[in-house]
Simulated assay, not measured.
Amino acid sequence: MDQLLNDFSPGLFIMQMVILLILLFLLAKFAWKPIMASLTEREEGIQNALDAAEEAKKEMQNLQADNDRLLKEARAERDAMLKEAREIKDNIVAEAKEEAQEQAAIMIENAKATIKQEQQAAVAELKKKVADLSIGIAETVVKKELASQDDQLKLVEGMLEEVTLN
């Protein structure tokens, strides 16, 4: 430490101080402003990027909310369409059943009417055959003019065996 004090030169010290002050002046005049401007510009760029990222985040949240809302609406619309389709199907099935029952009732009524007509025709035909048979038997009995009751009964029984009813 003694040696430093012995080697100390006040002129050199003052020169170095002047050079340092000139250097600081030059740096302040020419270097500090561009460095500070670039630092400020960089800070603003970073802040703008952060703001843009925040805005993009908010926009993504809005898009997600819109997507969720659209998805809910689509599901609700799909459910409504499915419900309507089920109702239409049920109505068609019910109408088809009702129409089938009406057609079946009409067919049954027609069949009953046909059966009744055929039955009446069969009865009429049977009455006609019985009348024809009775007339034939009466004619035969009258033609033969049989004297005995036994002969007449044998004749009637023989004729009945010959006649076959359908």
Results as ranks from 00 to 15, higher is better:
119 Q>H: 10
98 E>Y: 10
7 D>E: 14
56 A>T: 07
62 N>P: 00
71 L>P: 00
27 L>S: 02
29 K>I: 03
158 G>H: 09
136 G>S: 13
43 E>I: 05
149 Q>L: 09
33 K>W: 07
162 E>R: 12
143 K>I: 02
133 L>T: 02
55 E>K: 15
89 K>F: 10
96 A>K: 07
56 A>H: 08
52 A>P: 00
156 V>C: 03
74 A>R: 04
156 V>T: 03
68 D>S: 11
141 V>H: 01
130 V>K: 13
90 D>H: 08
33 K>F: 11
85 A>F: 05
163 V>A: 08
63 L>E: 12
128 K>R: 10
19 I>D: 04
94 A>F: 13
17 M>S: 15
66 D>V: 05
10 P>Y: 02
54 E>Y: 12
59 E>V: 06
67 N>K: 09
93 V>A: 08
133 L>F: 15
11 G>Y: 03
47 Q>P: 00
79 D>P: 01
106 I>L: 14
38 S>C: 02
158 G>E: 15
73 E>V: 01
84 E>P: 01
41 E>H: 09
150 D>I: 02
87 E>S: 07
162 E>W: 06
137 I>S: 01
30 F>A: 02
55 E>D: 12
88 I>V: 11
121 A>D: 14
146 L>F: 13
53 A>H: 03
16 Q>C: 06
114 T>R: 15
144 K>G: 06
160 L>W: 06
135 I>W: 10
130 V>C: 02
44 E>G: 00
37 A>M: 09
82 L>Q: 05
61 Q>D: 14
70 L>A: 08
59 E>F: 04
152 Q>I: 15
63 L>R: 12
98 E>F: 10
42 R>L: 11
89 K>Y: 11
110 N>W: 06
35 I>V: 14
103 Q>T: 04
131 A>D: 12
9 S>H: 13
5 L>P: 00
7 D>K: 08
59 E>L: 10
5 L>V: 07
97 K>T: 03
96 A>G: 02
19 I>F: 13
1 M>D: 07
156 V>Q: 01
27 L>W: 05
22 I>S: 04
45 G>H: 08
45 G>D: 11
84 E>V: 04
146 L>V: 08
110 N>V: 02
8 F>P: 01
91 N>E: 14
114 T>K: 15
117 Q>H: 09
95 E>S: 05
127 K>T: 04
